[in-house]
Amino acid sequence: MSAKTSSLVEMRDLKVAFDGVEVLHGIDLDVAHGEALGLVGESGCGKSVTWLAALGLLPGKASVTGTVRLEGQDLSAAPRTVLETVRGKRIAMIFQDPSSSLNPVLRIGRQITEALAIHRGLTGAAAKAEALRLMDMVGIPDPRRRFDQYAHEFSGGQCQRLMIAVALAGEPELLIADEPTTALDATIQAQILDLLGTLQAETGMALVFISHDLGAVSQVCERVCVMYAGRIVEQGTVDQLFSAPRHPYTRGLFDAIPRIDGPRRRLIPIPGTVPHPRELPQGCAFSPRCPNATRFCETKRPRLLLQPDGRSLACVHPVEPAADDTHRTEIFEDTMQ
């Protein structure tokens, strides 16, 4: 593997527990330089916790074990002073609710220039000029006039663009977008997704996109990890997962997507709910909801194993490709247009 495609971030056996209850069960994950990785799954499956743990942002009651390496540098055992040189500078994170991330009593310009001062040492006229450039880059109209406005004077979509500008201030090598379009309407969602794709192409940074929206993931990501109950259950390229999902949970996510065109079909919901971390089944966590589950699944937990087609899968009774899987390819192609 060349230096250009080598791993930027490596996670090995990352585990997180709150008050003695394990919620993340040994995550192994690599993010390459410049790649776009999607994390999908229901609420509570551990998508956000994975990266909050990696950056040391979980509360003190959380117990974190395992290793997280940034180009060989171990972040899991690093002191706070070292982590502060990584957060914002090398790894930046934007969240789904910009209104709770922007300071309501500070002007927008000051918030961006503050990030520039901390991460790049820019002050005065140089910082203002760079802040205006970032505002223009993320699509804020008339940035010079709006530089001295407050967050409440911007729309929800513009606030999310400003959060992206703050995140880009440190010129990060990795941007983690934690459901950045959830609080936005459909039109603004599409604009933000286009912006993330454009920025990644222009800057060469890696992107981790956390979302419930499979369509959004297909638009900006090259590779996808599907998480369930604190574990990765399937991992592969966007094309692989959208054309032929193999894990019953991944298949269930696609079956629940309504189609706008074509014949009307009854949606197939995934029965039941995600188990509470205190009450996980002895075997596969998805077995109580899985149509393919056997007694073996109820007692033995499958490992995430590499498959002949290059994907990774944690299932002993995977879904076999069927003729009706073609509609998943159509969804993928329609989304990418």
Results as ranks from 00 to 15, higher is better:
residue 181 T to D: 13
residue 275 P to E: 11
residue 287 S to K: 01
residue 199 L to P: 01
residue 247 H to C: 13
residue 266 R to T: 08
residue 289 R to Y: 02
residue 297 C to H: 00
residue 231 R to E: 10
residue 235 Q to H: 09
residue 214 L to P: 03
residue 271 P to I: 12
residue 183 A to K: 01
residue 191 Q to F: 14
residue 204 G to R: 14
residue 210 I to P: 01
residue 230 G to D: 00
residue 236 G to E: 10
residue 297 C to I: 06
residue 277 P to I: 13
residue 299 T to K: 05
residue 271 P to Q: 08
residue 312 S to M: 03
residue 258 P to Q: 12
residue 228 Y to K: 09
residue 255 D to Y: 06
residue 305 L to W: 02
residue 231 R to S: 15
residue 238 V to L: 07
residue 293 A to H: 02
residue 208 V to K: 04
residue 207 L to M: 15
residue 259 R to F: 12
residue 254 F to T: 07
residue 289 R to Q: 07
residue 288 P to K: 05
residue 280 L to K: 11
residue 292 N to I: 00
residue 264 R to T: 00
residue 177 A to V: 02
residue 204 G to C: 04
residue 206 A to K: 00
residue 198 T to F: 15
residue 186 A to T: 08
residue 260 I to H: 14
residue 305 L to T: 05
residue 247 H to P: 06
residue 180 P to R: 11
residue 212 H to Q: 15
residue 217 V to M: 11
residue 303 R to M: 10
residue 180 P to G: 03
residue 267 L to K: 08
residue 249 Y to P: 01
residue 192 I to C: 08
residue 222 E to R: 10
residue 221 C to W: 01
residue 220 V to W: 02
residue 209 F to H: 00
residue 316 V to E: 13
residue 308 P to D: 14
residue 213 D to C: 13
residue 225 C to M: 14
residue 230 G to M: 05
residue 210 I to S: 02
residue 306 L to Q: 05
residue 214 L to T: 00
residue 285 A to E: 03
residue 179 E to T: 05
residue 226 V to K: 05
residue 197 G to S: 06
residue 225 C to T: 01
residue 236 G to I: 01
residue 305 L to K: 13
residue 261 D to T: 07
residue 310 G to M: 03
residue 277 P to L: 11
residue 251 R to C: 10
residue 184 L to C: 14
residue 176 I to M: 00
residue 205 M to L: 12
residue 272 G to V: 01
residue 219 Q to Y: 15
residue 301 R to M: 14
residue 308 P to N: 07
residue 184 L to R: 08
residue 220 V to G: 05
residue 181 T to W: 06
residue 237 T to K: 06
residue 249 Y to N: 12
residue 309 D to H: 03
residue 179 E to L: 01
residue 250 T to E: 08
residue 276 H to P: 00
residue 286 F to R: 04
residue 225 C to K: 15
residue 266 R to F: 13
residue 202 E to Q: 07
residue 208 V to I: 12
residue 185 D to N: 02
residue 300 K to A: 07
residue 211 S to I: 00
residue 311 R to F: 00
residue 233 V to N: 03
residue 216 A to P: 13
residue 182 T to V: 14
residue 297 C to N: 04
residue 315 C to H: 06
residue 200 Q to I: 07
residue 257 I to A: 15
residue 316 V to M: 09
residue 250 T to F: 05
residue 246 R to H: 11
residue 304 L to V: 12
residue 184 L to T: 06
residue 192 I to T: 02
residue 234 E to C: 09
residue 310 G to N: 04
residue 316 V to C: 07
residue 228 Y to R: 10
residue 196 L to Y: 01
residue 182 T to S: 14
